[in-house]
Structure formats: C-alpha cells, structure tokens
Design a protein around this nucleic acid. Sequence first.
DNA 1: CTGAAAGCGCTTACAG
DNA 2: CTGAAAGCGCTTACAG
Lengths: 337, 337
Amino acid sequence: MTTKPPRRVTLQDVAKHAGVSRATASLIVRNSPKVADSTREKVLQSMEELGYVYDRVAANLRSQSSMTIGTIITDVGNTFFAQLLLGVHQELEKHGYTVLLGTTYDSLKDQNRLISTMLENRVGGLLLCPVSESSSETVDRIKQLNIPIVLGIRELSGLACDYVGLDYKTGAYTAVTHLLGKGHKRVAFIGGIFESTTWTERMIGYRIAHEEAGIEIDDKLIIDSEPTREGGLKVIQQVMNHDNPPTAIFCFSDLIAFGAIIGLRKMGYTPGEDIDIVGFDNIPEAEISYPPLTTVSSFAQVTGTKAAKLLHKRIKEPGREIQRIIIEPELVKRESS
Amino acid sequence: MTTKPPRRVTLQDVAKHAGVSRATASLIVRNSPKVADSTREKVLQSMEELGYVYDRVAANLRSQSSMTIGTIITDVGNTFFAQLLLGVHQELEKHGYTVLLGTTYDSLKDQNRLISTMLENRVGGLLLCPVSESSSETVDRIKQLNIPIVLGIRELSGLACDYVGLDYKTGAYTAVTHLLGKGHKRVAFIGGIFESTTWTERMIGYRIAHEEAGIEIDDKLIIDSEPTREGGLKVIQQVMNHDNPPTAIFCFSDLIAFGAIIGLRKMGYTPGEDIDIVGFDNIPEAEISYPPLTTVSSFAQVTGTKAAKLLHKRIKEPGREIQRIIIEPELVKRESS
DNA sequence: CTGAAAGCGCTTACAG
DNA sequence: CTGAAAGCGCTTACAG
C-alpha cells in the first residue's frame, strides 16, 4: 500500500553530485556572491537534475530567523478585511515573506488560540487586528517573546505598540456634518458595538458635529448592533419605530448601511429620498448598491499596505521608535444622501 | 542597542525545571496519554512559569510532518475567492491546520513562484486554484514530490488529481434557458477568457440551451474580456453597438454583470427592464445590487469547504482513489431578469 | 516512566 | 573555496 516515499533530496546530495562541499552549496542557495560563477552553474545544474527543493524550515531553525508573517484579521468574508488583507499580502510578498492567515470572527478565545499557533510556528512578525474585547495582556505576551508586532484598525489603550488605523472621529464628524448640512435635525447613529474603541471614536465625531451645529442629540437615536448586515437590518427597524423617527442615518459601516437599506425598503421608505443615509468604509459594494452609497472611505487596502510596511521596518530595525499611522478618511458622495 | 534577546525556553529547560526527562516532557506537549496525571500537572506548571512556547517547526522537521496547508487562489479582493477561502479556512482550522496564503492574480509566473515557496516551507498539502494558462506540468512537479494536492475551480486536463469544481455547463444552460424561456431570441454571452475551461464549459451550456430552444446563435453576440467589472463595462458597449443588439445578456460572472449594468445605464438602458441580465456566482453583492441580480449560485464557500475536506482525506489516506466533486449550481431569480 | 544517543536539513564558524 | 564539527529544538527508538 504505502510505497515509502523517496527520501528527500538534501543539500548534501546536491553537493556530492556537483562535487563541491556542503558549505559551498549552502552559499549558493543563499545567493552569496562569494562563489565563482562556474561553480554556481555546476551546482544549480545538479539541483535541477536531482529535483532539489530548498528546505526553508530547516534553514530557519538553524539560523533562528523566519520569513513568515502571521496576519490575524476578523473575517475574510467581510470585504473590508479582504481588502486590507490584499494590501498586506501584496506588500509582504514584495519583501519575500509568506503569510500565515488567521481569522478571529471577533472572538477573544479564537484570537488567543491563533496567536499561540502563530508563535508555535515561529512567525517572524505578527500583524494583528485585535478583537473588541482584547486587553493589553494579549499583546504583552507577544512583546515579551520579542516578536515584532503591529496592530491594525483597533488600538489597545496603554500599549506601546506600532499601529495603523483610521481617524474614526474625523470620519464620523465629516459624515454627520454632511447630513446636518443638508438640513437634518434628527440624525441616527446605528450599528457597531458600544464597547469597542472604533465605536467610541465615531461617537465622539458624531457628538462634535452636533455641538458645532447647535443641535441636541437624542440618545434614543443611538443604537448598537452586531457589525453585520443582519445587525443593520434589525436595528433600523428599532430606530424607525421611535415616536419621532430620524430623517437621516449615519451607519457604523457600509455593511450596516446595506442592512438598513433593505430594512427601510421593507418598511416602505425609499432610501436616499425619504431617508438620507451615509455608510462607513467605502467597500467596493458601496458603488454598485442601490442607491449608490454615500460613505466615508477608510482605505482598507492602503491601511493593509501601510501596516505591512511598518511591520517590515520593525523587523529590520527592532530598536526604532514606536510609530502610529493614522489615515485620514474621506467622504465619498453618491446618491444615498 | 541590541540587548540580546533572552534565549528561547526549550523543552530541555522545562524538563529540568520540572525534574523529569526531556522524553517525558515531549510526550506531554504531544498530549500522549502515557503520562501520569500528577507528572503532567507538574510539567504544565513548569511550562507556565517559564513561558514555554512549543516549537512546532522544530517538531515538524524532526518528525517529517507538517500541519500547514498552502492555499493558492486568484485574488482575495474578489469576493468569490474570499468566500472560497473562508470555507477552506474554517474547515482546515477544525483539523488544526494553519493556512499559508498565496494569490496569483491569474499569472502563471506568480503561480510557479508561489508553489516553490509553499514547497520550500514544507507544506503538508496544497490547495490550488490554477491560473488559466496552467499546464499539467505545474502540478506534476508537486505530485512527484509526493505532496498531497487538490485542485479547485479549474480542472487541468489529463491529470489524475483530486478536484472540486462546479458544473459550469449546467449552470450556463440553466441561466440561458431561463432567458430564452422569457421569450428572448438574441441572448449575448459576455466576459471571461476564451482559453479557460471555465469559459468553454459555460459556452457548451449556452449552446445546448439554444439548440433545445431551436434558436440560432449569432457568434457576434459572444465576446470575451478580462474577468473583472472593468472588463464587463467595456464589453457590454461593444455588444450593444451591434447592428442588431441582444435583448438579454448572460454574463460570465457577477463581476462582469456589475460592469454590464453600469455600462447599460450609461448608454441609456434600464437594466432589468429594457435588457434582461443574468450573472454567475451569486456573490454577496448580487443581492444588494441595483437591480438585484438574477444569477447562478456557484456556492463559493461550500466549494472551499469541500476542497479542504478532500485535501484532509488525501493527507490521511494517500492511497485513496482520486475523487472529483462537482457541485450543482442553482439559478437564483431576482429582479435583473 | 528515565536517560543517553541519533537524526530531521540546514547554517555557522573555523582552520586550512 | 573545502572539510569536519557543532548546533537550532524537537522526536524517535531503545535499553533499563
């Protein structure tokens, strides 16, 4: 049944075949310039003939290095994170890293498990989009082991750590100011999770916009939910059943906005005409939705790219100063408001 | 500057601290039942105290095994693949694998490079969605090294290899029959790349549907393109400028359909009223697009799950028969036709 | 359960 | 450039 698989071809085999020492062969796989071209040719030829495959794992073990990067995000099925991952991936590949992927679905337990797995796999660095309930202990563990880490999207308070994220406050401020500027007096803020900093920050922007416009906030127009389309669908119905319903909606994310749009239609409203809406993220779907969604762009892919660049720098230069990169959001006006 | 990082805590250290042999400690990290509970407790306690992190890489090197799986897809930014990856990822995690991610953007060169990287990283198995120009040699290389592989989405002709894909022919047949059944005589087939089997299969379904309905095909209504929204936008304009334009459009994918919808509006048509449209894939965006897209569901996530299951089986039982899993698509009727 | 030894495939350091 | 040796952190096999 099991014809024993042929033994793996080793660098030793290649060296013998090419008539050189193992040390020389090792120099060649590592692209060292200290080898005569003629020797190099001969050895490469032998590798070809024998079907040699470099064993990066063994090499990393010996040299105590690693070219794999752990990337932990919330959900690949969420376009926002898919775009972010895209940015991370493209940037890291440029530098020859390969990425080990993990998804938490915002569960702390999963996050801890994933971090352990990544560490056990000797990642050379970690890119973490922390779950909402993360405490700084999560990351302390990693820092103690001296492995380079950068945080994305969500910052952990009181933690000296590289970070790439968005200016959520300004994003929310811009969105809400846009709605107030259209004459709305009752602007709801729906979706997202109260406890998370990404929600709190938006809330601050929402508040400042109201203060500047001299409009009172009705706390009943602020309802949180799971950060999904289903969450948006549920919460829009709650808020519209208010005695004195809002005339415009600021949504925590585009996903929430899509749920809200579906909900509004169900209730007989025409989103974008009866009720103005603005989303957050500007995921690709926002452009083709009906009505096309006015939203705050959070540049997911760029965020990913910058986070990857930062991690690369941190790996190359562990002693460098902690850096925080805050991306400025932009309002993209379309037809929903 | 560089305070030398503290030496990694090894199993040896743990054993010494707990007063047991290294062999015993090794049994414990591997969850062997052959250890007395009291000993286990003592050792786990020591690990905790010392901050021990299991080195899976070293373990795999010694035991010649691997718990990482390479997954190579075309594009994470494309929701179809993101959904597929989601399925793969969830299933593999269940069995304790971690996934190494690669994206080809349909470039053969990138695919070859990625495969090399995966092999060098000693993956325990490979899940490959081959680029359109793949030849069977690509995969032969992997099979020779005896590493388990399963193909997804696109099958390579003349290759004995596990495969999970869709019945594209039936999918196209169902879609086109739906349009012909609504009385259309001129149904275009736009987008996708001629050379790829995923296109050819759809073409067969398109043809059979026409034959059964007794309607002649006008070859000028068949135009290919890049499989992107931009591709769809370009090609819809070409086909609508025909002397005798189509009254309905069968699109290679939802992405193409979204491009087509935008293009039709630009030209003054009302998609779903003047011109009927059906897409392919049923990505999440299809539901919220305007008009909501009638499309053929290709169950991306399920495909991913099945492919992952198949790979797991292949790894556990290398001698088992080659298996092909063909998923039956379903027409999802919405408002675009 | 222990203890000592060998080995996975590589890199490193060193004398020539 | 070569050659012989040691070591990365683990598992394996074996005698006790």
